[in-house]
Design a protein around this nucleic acid. Structure first.
Length: 446
RNA sequence: GGUCCCAUCGUCUAGCGGCCUAGGACGCUGGCCUCUCACGCCGGAGACACGGGUUCGAUUCCCGUUGGGACCA
């Protein structure tokens, strides 16, 4: 395939959530696989809900995930002239008309239609209107063809047929002068030379209208690919009540971007039995042909497993830096009083195998760095009770003397210490174990 | 309500008419390793929604039913 151009077009009305990321990811993979172009477009025509803060969150999220774009970010609000031009064109061609009906009138008619068992479709009351209605600003409607069928040829679904009779004369420009979603997308995709529209399933029903618009402009429609949705554990659309859904939350929870990318790539797509994919493998193997049709349920446990996997794989220096950031954020470590870098790296290394997230790793690291480093009194009280403080302190000293810094060595030092002080295991073991494991050991084992 | 889409273990999925007494992964679970936990290793339970066709033969093709989802406001 030549000159593939795809886009990701989020609305900046909040966080960048899991579903959006998956759409972005598949577009990105498709572009990279075909050595095409990935365009980022911000759909911010809804000015009441769009914020610059949200745009920043989206861009940061994509950068964190390594989904780099080649063009953009373009903003729809900067393209109003282009939309007006296209509206004028349709008006001139007689394929659009002014509509003076108020939302209230439309609502009443819709309810009547529903009550009478008819589909709620605009009755074209304003199509034959010759003169403007005093004191009203009109919306503009597209005059859609209501005969025959429109066939959407979807790369994932196959041919999907819609009766044109079902299609409404959709509003392309609202009375406040703003273009509507379906219209703006078409104009944007055409003017940005998008060759493949890869987007969520929820837009499949909009596609026939959009195809009619393409035709009205005399443009060849792009290829379409509608991705199945991502659902929550109760099989309804993934939302906040299913837990963390925003990318920022996963950053805060201590996930690695490669884990999220790997997990999301396997949601609705597969390549045989393979579970673990490097970014390069993903690019090489990705194909829309192997995208499934059925929606898939988001499974946090599998993501956690992948995160654990990637933590084990990750470079110790990188992990040390990330854990250090978290320790600073918690006020455990104060700026300028960081522990020795090589030492921290060794510590991180022995914590990796039992950590599923960076946050777990941070928690496990606290007792080891807590000793000599000035810290918040509250945090100290929580993690370092008076009876175990001196013991941990000794333990840490001895650990620092040990080379190499392996789990086996820790055990050795630990046991020696326990023997020397004549301690009952139960007295110190649990706090230390908990420290080592980030709190995952069940109490009462010793 | 109308239109459209979807349907393999609890979950993600392999399967594109015979290789399937349905494979892998997460989770669950039994065991091994080990001074404990974790890691690792070896096992186990667990699915083709239902009913009709088509075919010598259907998880795989067609139709219907049921169930789920999306859009339309």
């Amino acid at each position: 395939m030549n000159n593939v151009r795809v886009r990701f077009a989020p609305s900046p009305t909040g966080a960048l959530h899991i579903g959006g990321v998956r759409t972005a990811l598949f577009n990105w993979l498709f572009a990279r696989h075909h050595k095409g172009t990935f365009v980022l477009r911000i759909e911010d025509t809804d000015q009441t809900r769009s914020t610059d803060e949200s745009i920043r969150i989206i861009l940061d999220g994509m950068k964190w995930l390594g989904l780099d774009w080649d063009e953009g970010p373009f903003r729809q609000t900067e393209r109003m002239d282009i939309y007006r031009e296209h509206v004028d064109r349709l008006l001139k061609q007689g394929q659009a008309y002014y509509c003076y009906c108020t939302p209230e009138e439309l609502d009443v008619r819709r309810k009547e239609a529903m009550a009478a068992g008819r589909p709620p479709k605009y009755n074209r009351k304003c199509l034959s209107r010759k003169s403007p209605v005093e004191g009203r600003t009109p919306a503009i409607r597209f005059l859609s063809s209501d005969e025959g069928q429109t066939i959407v040829r979807d790369l994932i679904r196959g041919a999907v047929t819609f009766d044109n009779q079902q299609l409404d004369d959709l509003i392309i420009q609202r009375s406040d002068g703003l273009p509507t979603y379906n219209f703006a997308v078409v104009v944007d995709d055409v003017t940005m030379n998008i060759t493949h529209v890869v987007r969520g399933d929820d837009h499949l029903n909009n596609t026939p209208r959009q195809i009619q618009l393409y035709k009205a402009f005399g443009y060849e429609p792009p290829e379409f690919a509608h991705l199945p949705m991502i659902l929550g554990s109760d099989k309804t659309k993934l939302s906040k009540r299913h837990g963390a859904t925003a990318v920022t939350e996963y950053i805060d929870l201590g996930y690695l971007p490669e884990a999220l990318v790997n997990y999301l790539s396997r949601l609705g797509w597969s390549s045989g039995d393979q579970e673990i994919f490097s970014r390069q493998e993903l690019i090489e193997k990705f194909s829309l042909d192997s995208v499934g049709k059925a929606p898939s349920v988001f499974n946090p446990e599998k993501l956690l497993w992948l995160n654990h996997h990637y933590i084990q794989q990750a470079d110790a220096g990188r992990l040390a830096g990330l854990v250090l950031d978290l320790l600073r954020k918690d006020g455990i470590i104060i700026e300028g009083k960081e522990p020795d870098n090589a030492w921290l790296r060794k510590l991180v290394k022995i914590l990796t195998e039992r950590s599923h997230t960076l946050v777990e790793m941070k928690t496990a690291a606290i007792p080891f760095v807590i000793d000599e480093i000035p810290m918040d009194e509250k945090a100290k009280a929580k993690h370092l009770t008076p009876d175990i403080a001196p013991l941990l302190s000794t333990l840490v000293d001895q650990l620092r003397a040990v080379e190499p810094f392996t789990h086996a060595e820790i055990e050795k030092v630990f046991n020696a210490l326990v023997a020397e002080k004549g301690l009952k295991l139960g007295k110190i073991a649990q706090p230390v174990r908990v420290a080592l494991t980030g709190g995952t050991v069940s109490p009462g084992i010793y």
